[in-house]
Simulated scan of single mutants.
Amino acid sequence: MRIAIVTDAWSPQVNGVVRTLQSVRAELEKMGHEVLVISPDLFHSMPCPTYPEIRLAFASTNAVGAMLEEFSPQAVHLATEGPVCIAARRWCLQRDFPFTTAYHTQFPDYVSARTGVNPEWVWRYIKWFHGPAQAILAATPSIAATLRAHGLTRLRDWGRGVDLATFADARPDAAIRALPGPVMLYVGRVAVEKNIEAFLTVAHPGSNVVVGDGPALASLKAKFPDVHFLGPKFGADLAAAYAAADVFVFPSKTDTFGLVMIEALAAGTPIAAFPVTGPIDVLTPQVGAMADDLDIAIANALTRDRAACAAYGQTFTWTASARQFLQALVPIVDDEAVAA
C-alpha cells in the first residue's frame, strides 16, 4: 500500500512524536508498504516563538497537494496539528479524500503552560482539526476518553514500541552509575510543560540526572547547580543512561503516553510518576509507583524488581505499533490495497 504520512514534527527535532513516526515508517517499509513522509524540512520555515528548535513550515496547499498527487497515496495520515498538516487536510477535504489523524500531544495543556491561555479555547481548534478524520489514533484509553469527552468519537488504538535491540540488556553507563545513589533520572525535552522542576525539587537523597535539551535548559542549570545535566543522548548511549539509573522519574502531567517510560523499563529501570494520563495507562504496580507526592513515588519505585521491569518493557514492540497503525487505515482503503 502507498501510505502518505504528513507531519509538522520531524528530525532534527528530538521527541516522542518523531521517534514514533520514524520507527513506524521503518516497520511499514519492512512489511512491504511504500511510505511518503511530508515534513517541515521540505519547505521554508521559521522558528516557533518560544520554542526555536521547532520549525513552523510555510507549506501551501498547492505545494503539499502536488507531492500527494505525484505519490498517489492509497491512505493519508496527518500526524500533527501544524501548518504542513493543515495544508494536507485542506487538500484532502477539497477532493473528498479520507484521512486519519493522531493525537500525539496534549496540545491544549502545552499552550496553556506556555502562554496561560485557557486550554478549552485550544480545544476548539483541536475539534476543528480532527473532526473530519475517518479515525483519530489515540495512544492510551485515558487519551481516548479525553477526546471522547470533547466530542471526538472516531477513535482507534495506537500504542508505542521500544527498539529492543538498543534498550534491552543495555550496559550501564559507568560515570552515571558512579554517582552517589540512588541515581534518579529524567530523559526528555527540557521544557516548562514537562514539569521538570517537580523532579529537581524532590527531597529524596541521591543524584538527580537530566538527559535532554530544550528551551528551559539554561535556566534550570542556573537554578539547580547540583543537578547533573548531561545533554541529549541517543542510541546505545541513551540506553546506557537508562540502565545506570536506579529509578526513572517521569514528572510530566501533559503527555499522552510517555515513550521514555517504556524505554527505561526495557532497560530494567522502574518508574516513579504522578497518577496522570500516560503513567496510569502504561505502568503496573510491579514496574513502577505513582503518587501525588513524587518523593513517595520514588521511594516505592526503588523497591521494584528490575527483571520484572525489563520483562514488561520488552513487551512493547514497534512491529505491534505499526500493525495497529495499519489497521486504523483499513476503513479508508479498498481491500486490494490492504492486502498489498
Rank of each mutant, 00 (worst) to 15 (best):
A243M: 07
T269W: 13
S207N: 07
F234K: 12
K221E: 12
T153G: 12
A168K: 05
P180D: 14
A239S: 02
R171Y: 01
A241E: 01
V247K: 11
V187G: 10
A168V: 01
L185V: 10
G188C: 08
K233N: 04
E263N: 11
K221W: 02
V162G: 08
V162T: 01
E193V: 06
A174S: 15
V190T: 04
K223S: 12
P270Y: 13
F199E: 03
F199N: 02
T153P: 01
G206M: 03
L155C: 09
A168F: 04
L217P: 00
F224R: 05
A241P: 00
Y242T: 04
L155R: 04
V276Y: 11
L200R: 01
A244G: 06
G161H: 11
A222Q: 11
T166A: 14
T201Y: 05
T269D: 11
V209N: 14
V190I: 15
S207T: 10
A165V: 04
L265A: 09
P172K: 14
V202M: 04
V209F: 15
V183R: 13
R156P: 00
V247T: 06
W158Q: 10
A266M: 08
P232T: 05
V260H: 10
I176P: 03
R160H: 14
G212S: 10
G161I: 02
A241T: 00
Y242A: 11
S252M: 06
K223R: 15
D213I: 07
G188H: 03
G206Y: 06
R177V: 02
D246F: 10
G235C: 04
F229S: 12
T166G: 08
G258A: 14
A165R: 12
L238S: 00
R160E: 02
H204Q: 11
G188P: 03
A170K: 00
F224P: 00
V227Q: 08
A240R: 07
I176S: 11
Y186K: 02
V210Q: 07
P182L: 09
K223W: 06
S207H: 13
I262Q: 00
V249Y: 08
A240C: 07
F229T: 09
L238G: 02
L238Q: 01
F229C: 13
G188Y: 05
A191F: 01
D173E: 10
E193R: 07
R160L: 03
L217I: 06
